[in-house]
Design a binder for these strands. Structure first.
Lengths: 129, 129
DNA sequence: CAGTATCCCCCAAGATACTG
DNA sequence: CAGTATCTTGGGGGATACTG
């Protein structure tokens, strides 16, 4: 059911790091969580235009398994679950910031635009939007 | 035949950057090219344990398309083709270095090992391995 | 609200064979 | 040596329906 946590022995650090951020939405989840600190399931969903519930849950579970995301469940009615970054998630995010800057720069050079996200895109200072 | 060059509009720079390094071997190709400066097809192949000719060719073509890799063909017998990084490839590699350091650190903490590569792994100083 | 449970499709990635 | 061409497959990712 749960996927194999690790893909295999890694060849280098890049390989290992890319493994935990691979997945269509993981970079964005990190970004959302970094920007807002704490997010609920539905908020995350709204922030990731196009993601399905299954994929969001699946990615969140894998990232929890990988120690990047903390999942806090409140025994309330209606149910409430809050997601936030762990220390590892935060340092990963920092390590991703230069990559994000490279990507932003490249989009600018290539004349590419970001997609419009309902409710305005919010960009953490560390990532430069 | 050739794949669509771009996956679509990006949500942020991370998204855009991750797009060009996604693919099982791209990080490693960047790393090999950074370490050696110039590599021939067969050398690259030996440096990427387990890669098939098809995948190597395919990834190389995509990276050329993305402006990360330069392909120099010499009209000789036997044929010779040399691959090297473009300026964009070099800056991407630099942007990946902090991610690589994070990955290396994580492997250390988790007690993971790198796979053994025949002929000893060579690690560029910028990536710390 | 915050998920599971299923079913299905597509394509990245692998194996194998052939060529300029 | 440095590739192409073709066939196959595993599982990532999506759609939809149901539940505590």
């Amino acid at each position: 059911m749960a996927k194999a946590p690790r893909r295999g022995p890694y060849i280098c650090g890049i390989d290992a790091a890319l493994d935990v951020v691979s997945g269509k939405w993981k970079g964005l989840i990190l970004w959302e969580l970094q920007a807002h600190g704490v997010r609920r399931f539905a908020e995350l969903r709204r922030g990731l235009p196009g993601v399905s519930e299954k994929m969001l849950t699946q990615h969140l579970r894998e990232m929890e398994e990988d120690g990047l995301v903390h999942r806090e469940v409140y025994a309330e009615v209606p149910p409430r679950v809050e997601y936030s970054l762990t220390e590892d998630g935060r340092t990963l995010n920092e390590a991703l910031s230069s990559l994000g800057a490279w990507g932003t720069d490249r989009m600018r050079r290539e004349g590419l635009r970001t997609v419009e996200v309902a409710g305005t895109v919010e960009v953490p200072a560390s990532m430069g939007g």
